[in-house]
């Protein structure tokens, strides 16, 4: 079963995304920020990560750089409200990023993206 990890500092959004993924039949895990995500990623070993942009703690670039050193190699879909924190070119150079979606989002758009990369 495809494993999706939901990373968002907003508990309502995090739980909602988790519910959406479960509804589609995915195996899910949640993380409340970048550090939490990096701690859990190898044990859960997700196929796909929805990663919020602009969370407290490490920046998106920092998270993605550290992710490269992990055993787990998930595809990353960025979820962003005010587009990007820091240099977006650098964010996309990290390689793991396969898509980005603007919040608030259409469920269909998000699910299309997840399905495309599962």
């Amino acid at each position: 079963m495809t494993k999706v990890m939901v990373v968002d500092d907003e508990i309502d959004v995090r739980k909602m995304l988790d519910l959406m993924m479960k509804n589609e039949g995915y195996n899910t895990e949640m993380a409340e920020d970048g550090s939490d995500f990096l701690e859990k990623v190898d044990s859960f070993n997700p196929d796909i990560v929805t990663l919020d942009v602009m969370m407290p703690g490490p920046t998106t670039v920092e998270i993605l750089e550290k992710l490269k050193k992990k055993k787990s190699k998930p595809k990353v879909i960025l979820l962003t409200v005010v587009r990007f924190d820091g240099d977006e070119k650098k964010i996309f150079e990290q390689g793991n990023v396969v898509d980005y979606i603007k919040k608030p989002f259409d469920i269909d758009v998000l699910m299309d993206a997840v399905k495309k990369h599962e």
Binding site: E10, D12, V13, M16, L17, L19, M20, N23, M54, V81, V82, K103, P104, F105, D106, I107
Partner: peptide
């Protein structure tokens, strides 16, 4: 404006998401 729009859109993300789930009868 950046901060405000972030603050406005975060709650809208939950509203929009749940409304869509309800509408989809999920």
């Amino acid at each position: 404006l950046n901060v405000t729009s972030h603050e406005l859109r975060t709650p809208m993300t939950s509203i929009k998401g749940y409304v869509q789930m309800l509408l989809n009868q999920n």
